[in-house]
Nucleic acid binder design. Sequence first.
DNA 1: CATGAATGAGGCTTCATTCAT
DNA 2: AATGAATGAAGCCTCATTCAT
Lengths: 178, 178, 178, 178
Amino acid sequence: MNRKQLILEISLELFAKNGVVGTTTKSIANEAGVSEGLLFRHYQSKEGLVKALKKLAADKVRILAQEIIDLTQPKDVLRLTILSLTKIPFKDYALWKLILGIKFQSELADESLADVIEDKVTKAFKGLGFAHAEMEAELLLNSLNGMLLAMLLNKQYEIEPLLNLMLKKYQLNKRNLN
Amino acid sequence: MNRKQLILEISLELFAKNGVVGTTTKSIANEAGVSEGLLFRHYQSKEGLVKALKKLAADKVRILAQEIIDLTQPKDVLRLTILSLTKIPFKDYALWKLILGIKFQSELADESLADVIEDKVTKAFKGLGFAHAEMEAELLLNSLNGMLLAMLLNKQYEIEPLLNLMLKKYQLNKRNLN
Amino acid sequence: MNRKQLILEISLELFAKNGVVGTTTKSIANEAGVSEGLLFRHYQSKEGLVKALKKLAADKVRILAQEIIDLTQPKDVLRLTILSLTKIPFKDYALWKLILGIKFQSELADESLADVIEDKVTKAFKGLGFAHAEMEAELLLNSLNGMLLAMLLNKQYEIEPLLNLMLKKYQLNKRNLN
Amino acid sequence: MNRKQLILEISLELFAKNGVVGTTTKSIANEAGVSEGLLFRHYQSKEGLVKALKKLAADKVRILAQEIIDLTQPKDVLRLTILSLTKIPFKDYALWKLILGIKFQSELADESLADVIEDKVTKAFKGLGFAHAEMEAELLLNSLNGMLLAMLLNKQYEIEPLLNLMLKKYQLNKRNLN
DNA sequence: CATGAATGAGGCTTCATTCAT
DNA sequence: AATGAATGAAGCCTCATTCAT
């Protein structure tokens, strides 16, 4: 069993549950069954652990985002944007919750990727002839953020029916040819 | 100048900016220009400060919620629910951000009031003949949560145009008689 | 009702129960139903309260001691020394407990009066022809200290039978003419 | 050099000299030449230090008491009870003083062991045909407590002559066959 | 005489981090 | 790579004392 990996997983779990400041390095070490010193050998500092987790999350986001960016049909863009929430496996909930928690605090969030998506969605709305494409994009993305929040905080939340209802409202159901 | 009140205001400001754990009692005292001991004289503990702020927020929420609950016309219910975000004065942003941050962490949120609103909104959708009233209510409330989040994190956010767009989608514009 | 006096009585009670360091000026003020500031107006400092109580105790001790010192017959001296414990009214237990507690801590006790008594008792033993008068005196006084301790710590302690037994051992019973 | 042990010894010394509340954890750390944090690593809290010392004392008491309990001859019981004071090595004076100080304050003392001894001594007096065995036992034990007090407070106190005098009064001298 | 808001020094404790082994 | 004893800065909180009213 890889101890370095184990430490990261336990950290994620505890950070997501109690917040970063609410989690002590000692508790991580105990939970992982390793010495406290080992955390620092592998990750230099508590912040190092957070950074490693952030990078992990960023990679996952990038993959999801890239799939959207690669699409060419407006309806495909919107559909996948909405359905991207269903692509988050349950085991990643903690990771996302952690990242959301951090973003919520830090004034200056790294928004570069979010901006790219917003652009893409805006263009999709334009392509579909919506009147206020920018606002439509914001509305959609904010709404999805709200769904994400509900999903992460409420672990047994059934998100798919809600997303299907959204798809219907935007007339993006599978049976509609794009 | 009321020092007790001042301490609460400064606390709110710092808590919202740096989080509760990220804010020291000493920093509150310094910022408020009072001795550290005075915090404890007035609020017993740091947690006492948080509780006082929670109560403040709960009162404000209760007022907003009551207005919605008192309405009888379905369209009025939905319209006010959506527009309730515009009823939050800018000076209260910090308070809401703090409360949201706390809720985000604590597993067991006090959902009693939220449930009442969800019921009311569900009934409104039913009254308007919507097919999946419960899901419509969830969708709407989650979306509004997303808007709230964007608004609180992004202080110069223009929320009203987005809400007007939502009203239009639900055909709740003022010019429509309810 | 004299507040100054009241403060002193409450202080005694709390000091005896929780020790001087274990008693806060705030608790005294609360218990006495006066403001904290008043303690300091009347007694200048917490130590001032202790001093006032010490003086109170010293006066009582002096009276007891003087009675013994004034006696001329050896047997009378011993008898009264032993019976002096019965002269402590129940309401003074707290005062004595406090003084004992303080003496127990402070390295340098004011032993002047105790020495006078020890001299007197030693001479009494000498007058009665005891072989090791000094040691007899020490033995007696230490034993009485032990009785005092038991009496003060155990409020419903029956001290008189024990003292009568002591009297008998030293052949000091009332029926014996001195 | 064992730092954990060292901390305990220094604590004992300072507690006995200044009382528990009168001793700061910082002073212990300084005196022991270790960081303040180390106290808490080893003993969790200041109270933890006190508990460790209490346990140490309880063990020593138990050993002394067991020796008495194991005796079968009445005279042996009384003789050892009286002489047990001489079994306390000078280096343990601080420990005993500390424990006595604590007992003096705490209302509810753990008297179980003391009761066992009192029983044993009472039976010994009965075995020797004393009229009021219970009272004789109380008298003896209270007196011994008084001797202990004098001995602990007055470090260069000569306790043995006093105890020998006691032995003689009870006719327990070694030359007397039991 | 009396109040009670206010102070500030200092106490106990936590925790990220280092380092010898 | 791994441990765990050790550190020390900093945090929350208490409490005797002061002072304006």
